[in-house]
Amino acid sequence: MLRSSTSKYLIAACVCVMVALGVAKGKDKASEQCNAVLVISAVTQSSSEGNGNIHVRSLSPWTWKFSTVENRIPSTIWEAECSSSHCSSPNNPSQPGAFTINSVPIYQQVLVLSHKESCYTASYQTVAVGCTCVWAKTAIN
């Protein structure tokens, strides 16, 4: 999972790369050349330490899956996958709750850099970062 401080460094790095590559408004795209080097610090801090195994303790538990793309920064992104389509009962976690409460993913936009030839392209990728309980859709809602 991307940590918030890593995301901040990634955003700052993307802005620096975009400025360095002349992606600012008004630049003639035909004359652009990409030959910048991107350096990202390996030192990160986490503001989410202490949450432990929240993905297992949740009433809407999830597992982590990862995808790795060689020419992407970050190259590996961890994504949540809901363990069930229904939430657990808070009174008896081993029993599924009434089928009126569903487990759904929570999405976050993550800034990524894609490297092609000698250029980096910044874009956002939608990533599931956890799961939560919501009332099931009915004919009324």
Rank of each mutant, 00 (worst) to 15 (best):
L2H: 02
S4Q: 04
S5W: 11
S5R: 12
S5G: 06
T6S: 11
I11T: 07
C16K: 08
V17C: 14
M18R: 13
V19C: 14
V19I: 13
V19L: 08
A20R: 11
L21H: 08
A24Y: 04
G26T: 09
Q33R: 13
C34R: 07
N35G: 14
N35S: 15
A36V: 15
V37P: 01
A42K: 12
Q45Y: 04
Q45L: 11
S46R: 09
S47K: 15
S48L: 12
S48W: 09
E49F: 08
N51H: 05
G52T: 00
G52E: 02
G52K: 02
R57F: 08
P61T: 05
W64P: 04
F66P: 06
E70N: 13
E70M: 08
N71K: 04
P74Y: 03
S75T: 01
T76I: 09
I77K: 01
W78R: 15
E79I: 04
S84F: 11
C87R: 05
P93C: 02
P93L: 01
Q95M: 03
Q95I: 12
G97D: 14
A98E: 13
A98Q: 09
I101F: 13
I101P: 03
I101C: 02
S103F: 12
V104S: 01
P105H: 07
I106T: 10
Y107K: 11
Y107H: 15
V110M: 14
L113A: 09
H115A: 11
K116T: 08
E117N: 11
T121L: 07
A122S: 15
Q125L: 10
G130K: 09
G130W: 07
G130Y: 02
C133K: 04
C133N: 12
V134C: 03
K137R: 14
K137Q: 14
K137S: 05
K137A: 11
A139F: 13
A139N: 15
N141V: 12
